[in-house]
Every structure is written in structure tokens, then in C-alpha cells.
Amino acid sequence: MTYDPMFPVTYSILDPAALLEEVRRSYPLPEPLEYRRLYLGVNDTYFLAAAGTPLILRAYRAQSRPPPRVAFELDLIERLVTTGVPVARPIHRSDGRYSTTLAAPEGGRELVLFEFAPGGPPLRDETAAERYGGALAALHTALDGLEPTPAAPMLDLRALLDCPLEQLTSVLTHRPADLAFLAEMADLVRSYVEANAAFLDWGACHGDFQWKNAHVDDAGTVTVFDLDGAGFGWRAHDLAVFRPLSGDAAIWSGFLRGYTRKRTLSQADLAAVPYFEAAIRLWSLGFFLEHRDSTAWGSDAVNDALFNREVALLRRWWPRLTAR
């Protein structure tokens, strides 16, 4: 019996000792180096400490995060740095570059070392929400005027609605009523966005502006990180990511207060938030399906229990959209 030299690989787990040696070769960091794997997922993230200084190391997926996509993220971060927005910055290698391409079995994987955002996760209260709102407003203002590049993801209706529905159609054949409901909701969102597109703020977005993707230090400064999901879309989408479907009214009010103190928010953008909340739930289902065979949660996590929860959530949300 003969074998191919390398069996096809979708996703590899990188050897910790080899990663540390790669970091030592590539970056002028003081010893000792300490290592801890934080999580494996769409990308793999590691905590490093160089002589006690905390750092974050990220290994991007070969298929979903090719070099141009990673370069787009790093370019956005550079823009934020130059405009004074607190953001976790990438660290230059000894040769001046930001990324290293690792020859993994599934293909080249980009490796980038970042500063650790000062502070830590805040107490999720109205004060912190106000600071987060101000941070997102500053980010949007800093990214105003940028034009999409070929590598820039588009957070448009195809990405938010069409692609997820295409994926769901193949797995919800046993739930025709739910599939029809999701398609109807997508049509409602599409109709609203298309009818109001001329009045909605469009530009470069963070893409995943959640509590967990920023830290707050003792002075109250919010430092943003994880722009892996960044792209060009409607800014109301970024606001909708922060506001969960079952969100707290006081926290949302604080967030809006912080945002509007630094940037104008039109009534059209504010009214669009619930529609983008629905779109995000639909997108999330497609995201789980897309990555179910190549991430830490596995295919068993994408099951009827997940669909039951998400569809029930959207059905409760439906009256708020149809009443507008």
C-alpha cells in the first residue's frame, strides 16, 4: 500500500515549543518568554510574556485569513494608531515586517504578535458602556474616508443575509417553516436597508465590537483589539453587534450617550439597529455552519438546540420590526 506524502489537513494545532522558537527568531524580545494558549477557534490566540511584559500572539487560519486579508486588518490598525485611537498595535519583527508566514500542513498561516491591551474587561455597567460607545465613535471617525481595497471584506447584504441563507437551506430541510421564516426576515431586513441606504452611514467598521474585544484601564481609557472581523459596511451594524437582542436598556442608553458625545448618530442609523441585530443573528448561524468542521466547537454544537434557540429569539424580535 502506498500513501501520499501528506494527508490533507484542514486545520493544524501548532506546536508550542516551535512557536516560541519562531517568536525568538523573529522578534527582539527579552527573556524569559512565557507561553499560554488562550483559545483555538477561527484563529488561534496565545498569551505571551516577555520578561513579564504581556503580549498576544495570533495564528490566522490558512483558508479564511490569507495574507491580503491579514494585511487589511493591520492597515486599519495603523490608521487608528496614527489618528490617536487607543488600539492594541502589532509589533514589528526584526526585519520591520509585521507578519510571519508559517508553512503549516494546510497552507501558509500568518502569525502576528500584538501588544496586550492595557487594563482588562470592565464591569459591564452603564459607565463602561458609555466609554465603549465613545471608543466606537472615535474608531468610526478615524476610519472615515477610507476606500475599500480588493482584500477588504464587505459586510453587505450578501454577506449578512444571502450567504447565511444559502448555507441554512441545505441543513434546515427538515424545518421548512423555520427556513421560510428566516427567509422572510431576511427580506424584511433587505427591504428596510435598501429603502434607507442613502441615509445610512457606510464605511470601515470594527465588525465585532463586543465587550470582550476591548479593555479598560484604571484611567477609564478603552483600548480596542481584535479587528479580525473588520470590513466595509453600515456603521449601524457595529452598534447592533454591541447591543444584544435581550440587552439592558440602561447599558444601551449609556452606550448611545458615549457614542453621540463624540460623533453624530442620525435617526436613520439608530432606527436601523434592530434590523441589523436580526441580520447579525442570521449571519451568526451561517458562521457556525461555515466553521463547524474546522473549529474548536465542532459539528455537534451546530444542532437543533442551537436552531431552536436562535429561531425563537428572532420570532420574539419579529413584532418589533414589523411594527415599524
Rank of each mutant, 00 (worst) to 15 (best):
L139N: 03
E130W: 06
E166M: 10
S191G: 11
Y192T: 12
G119M: 02
L146T: 11
A129V: 06
P122V: 01
A137R: 00
G119P: 04
L168R: 09
R131K: 11
M154I: 09
A183P: 01
V189L: 06
P148I: 10
G120M: 05
D125S: 02
V189T: 02
A186Q: 06
C163M: 14
L139V: 07
L161Y: 00
T169Q: 14
G145L: 09
L139A: 07
A177K: 13
H174E: 15
L172V: 07
Q167Y: 12
G134P: 05
D125T: 00
E126I: 01
T141S: 14
A177D: 13
T141A: 15
C163A: 15
L172C: 06
G134V: 04
T141P: 03
A159H: 14
T141I: 15
P118V: 09
A186C: 12
L161M: 04
Y192M: 13
R175Y: 01
G120Y: 03
L182S: 07
T149Q: 13
A180T: 14
L143P: 08
V189W: 00
T149H: 09
L157G: 02
P153K: 12
G145I: 11
P122D: 01
G134I: 01
R158V: 13
E126R: 07
L172H: 09
L160C: 04
E184A: 13
R175E: 06
H174M: 12
T149C: 08
L146S: 07
T169K: 14
L143S: 11
P150A: 11
Q167V: 05
A183Q: 11
P176K: 13
T173F: 14
M185E: 08
L143F: 10
D187P: 00
H174W: 13
P176A: 12
R124D: 02
H140F: 08
A142H: 08
L139Q: 03
A138T: 14
V189I: 12
M185T: 02
P121Q: 00
V193R: 02
L143R: 06
G120R: 02
R175K: 12
L161T: 03
D125G: 07
E130H: 05
G119T: 04
D125M: 00
E166C: 08
P176C: 10
Y192E: 13
L123A: 02
P121D: 01
A128I: 01
S170Q: 15
C163Y: 14
L188H: 14
R124W: 04
D144W: 12
S170K: 15
V171P: 05
A186I: 08
T141G: 11
P148Q: 12
R124A: 05
L155D: 04
A183H: 12
Q167N: 11
D144C: 10
D162L: 04
